[in-house]
Amino acid sequence: MQPITRIHSRTAVLADENIDTDRIIPARFLTTTTREGLGKLCFNDWRYQADGSDNPAFPLNQPAAGGCAILVAGRNFGCGSSREHAPWALLDYGIKAVLCSEIADIFRGNALKNGLLAIIIDEAEHRWLLDHPGTELAIDVREQAIELPDGGRIRFELEPFARHCLLNGVDQLGFLQQHADAIEAFEARVEKAA
């Protein structure tokens, strides 16, 4: 994974609460066996009209949302299934960060492992960002801070290991493999007792 230290972009807003993984990528597309090319299916049933053309009512289809890499989403984003296809699709669609006051656990873990910044912010700041699409933000992973255009900063929590992995492009599987001896010892102890 590439290190991720800073993301700079205007925001796009999807104000709906409880945007579930079925809305991010409908289940019928999950027969894929690769992780590539899912961006064109991202938000599929919301984003396109029946004839396949863009749905003008979908906020991310507005010209102002073009090129935005930071998504501000309504409360409880990413609830539902464990499908990692959801962050894969968002990343391939061009989203690099999701800001929300609540983010579902499994989605958040999946997102961070793929370098999609799933960041939880306070309700008041969330409210403000929901009301102000198109705000220029910079997200600084090292500082754990979102920089606002007026010079203000929003601090956010990030699990220290996830932060370390993002900043250094650490491969989590590689880290786990360093515990090979401990794992073997654990197995030996437990399986002998059984």
Binding site: S82, E84, I106, N110, K113, Q172, L173, L176, H179, I183
Partner: peptide, 13 residues
Amino acid sequence: GIGTTEVGHVMAT
């Protein structure tokens, strides 16, 4: 439940 990256972690370790 876990994501696919973690499925790989469990398979390997």
